[in-house]
Write a protein that binds this DNA or RNA. Structure first.
Lengths: 233, 233
DNA sequence: AAGTGGTCTAGACCACTCC
DNA sequence: GAGTGGTCTAGACCACTTA
């Protein structure tokens, strides 16, 4: 009694991917309908639907009602990035994680953030800067602004032991956010803290999060040279 | 005859997300089983399964057989990046896209690539460098190595009009790949082509692709200052 | 051993879009 | 108007994991 039984949606995906890669189905080409493919493979339509739907989510196929399913023209592949939790990132390299607070102030929002946080005539934000360390060596410089209206408990938290990163994860849920990646030259201040020459090329991750319409935090994280964010296609 | 009818998997996701964000279900907490939730919302188990499965895919929940479903401890969010097709990227900004070939040589694989491409005593690769332009201005410097064994037609393609980027998309399917992002200082050569001072911080995207075990191409793309890769959380 | 998620089936109706 | 994908249902069996 071997147990091959019916096709799984993954085995269907494998075969469909094979056909696409082998150019049996070429980019832009209309492929058979769900019903036809289900018949060919001897599976239920729902199973074939899942196989095709996920491939469309991955960017391999394009689907439209009534118009059918096509092989995507530009393999506009999507890469799924795991947003790193810094402690995990450090510990994954075998380092011991720690955090060091540099500054903690309450300040008016800088121009850059005024629109984002709403310029309620001189709204004051918590401004925290600090270093994430791996075995005591600088791993990442963090410059963070937090909306105290969204997270009142912030006034009671010294952030000397726990990083605002981890504290916020526990205290402040968010519903929406943006993340972007860029390269920036190290400012003199950041250069000192990271122990690199000013002007050094830094990998910068910038994140802003909201809960509904309420801005929570805006953070800029600068990595010293050698850092790479990697993913599979 | 309004048509509210039954719950959709998306409406289920909305309500589940609301509970997570409102801290009705806290990180690490075990939530009810599929069967119980389906009963609560009056839907089929399959519908609830899809809602929960996709939230787990998105990193909001963690599921294990027999162990149940929990709210993820670290909202280790995943961001899905659309890998840009350069022409589209340029045209999205309203610019006119063009490509200019700088060098085209057949060379032995450099040390960096020898392991990746297999060091078949002095294997020679196609090495192409060029500029992607937006309205004639440098948009991106590309340095690409191509395995001619995988793409024999390369010897007949001058790449003066079409970028290797677009040519490969048409000619060479790939099955696997890696992509990584970093910040690098501009080398003198790249600086000249991009029209920036040497040492300028550049955003660098590096991609390597295979078809099965056969390496296809390895490309390093350097963006001048101001470039950002953005995504939503 | 038992409970939980993972998946498949067969059928149905709906929504969108092209003809 | 008709054909395609999108989704839901009700039921079933399986696979994994923990107790």
């Amino acid at each position: 009694m071997t147990r091959p039984a019916t096709a799984t949606y993954q085995s269907l995906q494998d075969e469909i991917l094979r056909r696409v890669r082998a150019r049996e189905w070429t980019p832009g080409m209309l492929i058979p309908t769900e019903v036809d493919l289900a018949a060919e493979f001897g599976c239920a339509r729902a199973t074939m639907n899942r196989a095709l739907r996920e491939l469309a989510d991955a960017g391999v196929l394009e689907r439209k009602r009534r118009a059918g399913t096509r092989v995507a023209l530009s393999p506009a592949r999507r890469a799924t990035l795991k947003i790193p939790v810094i402690r995990d990132e450090v510990e994954a390299t075998g380092g011991h994680y720690s955090y060091g607070l540099i500054h903690r102030r309450i300040e008016p929002a800088p121009a850059r953030l005024r629109q984002q946080f709403g310029n309620q005539n001189g709204q004051r934000l918590a401004h925290l800067t600090g270093l994430h360390l791996s075995d005591g060596a600088p791993f990442l410089y963090e410059d963070r602004w937090i909306n105290p209206a969204a997270v009142p408990a912030i006034h009671d938290e010294p952030f000397e032991r726990i990083s605002p990163n981890e504290w916020l994860v526990r205290e402040a849920p968010f519903s929406d956010g943006t993340i972007d990646f860029s390269a920036e030259a190290a400012t003199p201040e950041i250069a000192v803290h990271l122990g690199v020459p000013p002007g050094t090329a830094l990998f910068v991750v910038h994140r802003a999060t909201w809960f509904g319409d309420t801005p929570i935090t805006d953070v800029t994280m600068s990595y010293p040279p050698g850092y790479r964010l990697t993913s599979r296609l």
